[in-house]
Design a protein around this nucleic acid. Structure first.
Lengths: 234, 234
DNA sequence: CGACTGATTGACTGCCCTCAAATAGGGTGG
DNA sequence: CCACCCTATTTGAGGGCAGTCAATCAGTCG
């Protein structure tokens, strides 16, 4: 039911047999680009585990501007708000950006499972905590970093999350627009900065794709962006 | 042990007798201004419930700049990361800004309680989810609102959280500096804007205090800042 | 070979931060 | 009661980062 090598914070700490039971309670579903898995504000009725594919998490401002929070990759979970008591609305919109598949649990079902398996409950807690940490990082970046630094940050983060390792470097399937949105930078600023980096040989651009050449060369250089936790080298 | 009328998301859904048992496992402690209850990055060893007083939650940037996330008021809980599995670091620093008192649980103790009382586990989940929602709101404000709008947003939010109702309006114990930090605005921008609002009669300033006159007059006026959920009037 | 979407480039603008210097509160000690 | 100090606050001038706008260019797909 799950691909080989599948890892998920959500299921961490559970035994194989427990996982089997929990998965048995789920429904599998295919997803396609532009499909909305959950909509911010709708009543939270189900919890999703992304099995394959890629999704985007964002909020809509009143003027229609999207506030992007991050990508979701296999192993990530959405709609965790489902298990709190008062039938609350989803906090963010989740939209598929690639073909893929998800597992879903209905509200009652995952509440029951959470009570029965404390480790599942803890897993959910871990996931929400990770999201909290991540959003605080994004806020810190938005507050203290320049547009260029944020852009590099996103490039490196995306490389780790959705990059495909190749002989010439790490390939990313991202348009300038997606990159700009993720880095909270205007489309033009992104284009300019990427061009400059291309001139410097740091990366190579093509339509809808970025090739990061040997990112280890410039990780942790002047960009405090890579990973604040691991950059404290004693 | 708890003041009359004490409410906390953390303890919601628990019976009185359950609460009694859970509180019995806690240690009470007094806190004073500038005292740090937990430090970002330290290993999470205890969970705190604020009983009385006021605290601030923030992160430190590498250059020492503080990134303020919000106030904590009685009923709020901190260090929830304590209950995840891998003995992780605290996500934020919590610092007292007023005299007050807290209840604390040690790691092992609250993990055991969480397993025994699923409703406590759910309560923790609710709290973390609320924080996540809040931080996403702050990020949205930072991204889409002007300095003035953010300032007004903080004024209104603070009024609800820590305002004291009086005959002339709502009194807030906040310095310009605290306000500026919370709104992610420079001290000077804050001062200027507050002066303008004072001229318009919207508020009255004195050293370290703000008096909001009849805030219902300008809530939801040109400021999309008040409360995005309730401002969607059909 | 069009048509469409994605990307580029330059010029301009504006919000808001920075810096410097002055001003005012409010408590303290004489 | 007054002089004093420390901190909070004000005000103006100047500048820079990055966003907006408009127009053009390039790559892909039918």
């Amino acid at each position: 039911m799950l691909p080989r090598g599948f890892r998920s914070t959500f299921l961490e700490g559970l035994t194989t047999s427990e996982i089997k039971i929990i998965l048995a309670a789920a429904r599998q579903e295919q997803i396609s680009p532009r499909q909305v898995l959950q909509q911010e504000g709708d009543l939270a009725s189900r919890l999703c585990l992304l099995v394959t594919g890629r999704v985007a998490a964002y909020r809509l401002a009143q003027d229609g501007c999207r506030l992007f929070f991050g990508w979701g990759v296999p192993g990530d979970t959405f709609g965790l708000v489902t298990i709190v008591r008062e039938l609350p609305p989803y906090l963010v919109t989740i939209e598929a950006v690639q073909e893929g598949s998800i597992l879903t649990w209905r509200r009652a079902s995952c509440q029951a499972l959470a009570v029965q398996y404390p480790n599942l409950s803890r897993g959910m807690n871990s996931v929400v905590t990770q999201y909290l940490d991540h959003v605080m990082d994004v806020l810190a970046a938005r507050s203290f970093q320049t547009a260029d630094e944020r852009l590099m940050r996103i490039l490196l983060k995306s490389a780790r999350q959705i990059g495909r390792m190749g002989p010439e470097g790490i390939a990313l399937d991202l348009t300038n627009e997606q990159l700009a949105e993720a880095a909270q930078v205007s489309l033009f600023t992104a284009s300019r900065q990427l061009s400059e980096w291309e001139d410097r040989g740091i990366l190579k651009k093509s339509r809808g794709k970025i090739l990061l050449r040997a990112p280890h060369h410039f990780v942790g250089q002047q960009f405090g962006a890579s990973d604040p936790k691991s950059s404290e080298t004693p």
